[in-house]
Amino acid sequence: MIKIDQLSKVFQTSNQSIQAVDHIDLQINKGEIFGMIGYSGAGKSTFIRLINRLEEPSAGSVLIDDQDITKLSKRDLRISRQEIGMIFQHFNLLWSRTVRENIAFPLEIAGLSKTERSERVDQLIQLVGLTGREDAYPAQLSGGQKQRVGIARALANNPKVLLCDEATSALDPETTDSILSLLVDINEKLGLTIILITHEMHVIQKICHNVAVMEDGRIVEQGSVLDVFSHPKQPVTKKFVEQVMGKPDNEVADDIFIQQVNSGKVLKLQFIGESTNQAFISQVAKKYDVELNILQGNIKQTQAGAYGSLYIQVTGTDEVVSQAIAYMDSTSIEVEVVAND
């Protein structure tokens, strides 16, 4: 478990001081994928670099499994860092080394013998899916492959936690998805705690369990991804949710397509953490003698299940329609009647 207490960083320039990270308190559970989102300049990059002390904190503490990173001597810090993997936006691979040699580098630092290194590198290459590219130089790899090398390198010494500093921001959307699924895969396989920072909400939506929103060095909102998605409180959070979900639902309700519906009822089905599938709709159609027409929907899959809303038109006799609505209401799906005929 990682416990961050009153963590602060002040940058001193000649004529002013900048509070990049402002008294952050945070608790990250073992095996969790934790996302920190914020616009550039919010301090998230400084925040993640404080965790392994690439940046020296001005105040506060970082406890990883009860060991206070901020109190360690230089020598102990070096040893602790071998248990904290880190991947970077621009990969930061060694150009003069092949894929194998890059992955072996942290093992050399940890003092493993040549045969041990070679064995471990083979495992890692397989884990990140780089078989066949072992002897290529970074210049010969695509961005996604470079990041896979970065991930293998970060995992080499079996770290307790993996820090991801905008790990997908330099990649195209398709490659981003493949790297994200690799991270989820690793998280599940190895039970590894992952802390990532990003400015892209879909990264949070796809892989994180919990999220914190950062603005001006402070955490302005945090919670489970579903909670933050379904009830964003701060304006900045709402903006991030819109990145993925489009415009807010209350605006959708006023849309022309709803006004033009002239028979039956329009329902808004809100899915929060539901294992959404089409069976739900067909169940309703089978059970009740109603016509269901899907008008519009926006459902995203998150780590904790689906989140989003679906607008449907229900037609039938008043009695059957209200029975159907009552049934839908009895499930965990929230039902709201948006328009009547």
């Binding site: 392994n52 690439l54 810090l77 070096r78 040893i79 602790s80 860092r81 071998q82 904290i84 880190m86 970077f88 930061n92 691979l93 580098f105 942290p106 630092i109 940890a110 390198r153 010494n157 820090l163």
Partner: peptide, 8 residues
């Protein structure tokens, strides 16, 4: 920085 982060 990456090397430092590895504990070099």
């Amino acid at each position: 920085e990456a090397a430092q982060a590895m504990g070099a």
